[in-house]
Amino acid sequence: MKKLQKFLDIAAILLIVAGLYMAFMFAPMERVMGAVQKIFYFHVASAWIAFFAFFVTFVFSILFLVKQNFLFDDIAESSAEIGIMFCTIVLITGPIWARPIWGVWWTWDPRLTTTTILWFIYAGYIMLRKFIEEADKRAKFAAAIGIIGFIDVPIVFFSIRWWRTIHPNVVQKGGGGLHPDMLKAMLFAILAFSVLYAAMMLKRVRIASLARRIDALGENNG
């Protein structure tokens, strides 16, 4: 376990350094947007990981309700917390990119708005967990939010898309308009952040299970 952790930590750091090289040196400079376009690689990678992390929370919330194994609850909780970290990065880097390109910090585009709503759903999820003391109730109620929240996301997205849209649509059209080297740099950034996600998950899940262990030990002693 310890060895795997060390390996993942080092791999994540090395891959991120390599990812930075890919983004700044390997990928060509965007002609219209200029240097600020280089935010794109890690912005997209963060968004990818955030969605993936919330998907993991969804899956393990279901598993917890079915199997009642608290390890699944720890995984769901950990993934939500890491997901909200990456979601925060998306929400901050997005406006930083948008300001010089669109001339505004914020627009009510479907993906921006959906990501914001997503952030609020999982912020609620994490707050809820802090406000319930009984481990059993906490896990069950949080699982309900983890499931309903994730199912809600596509509905939110479609409802807002019917409402308005301007976000550059890179992923949908098979990389439409994206230089192949840029695509490679983007995929590499996603790979680097995936390994970072795995390293963080391993730590966060161990924190959660140790905290559970401390609770159990405390009950036996007191």
Binding site: I117, A123, I148, D152, I155
Partner: peptide
Amino acid sequence: PLLLLPIIVP
């Protein structure tokens, strides 16, 4: 409201 409002956006 913290849990409900974001979910009922649609």
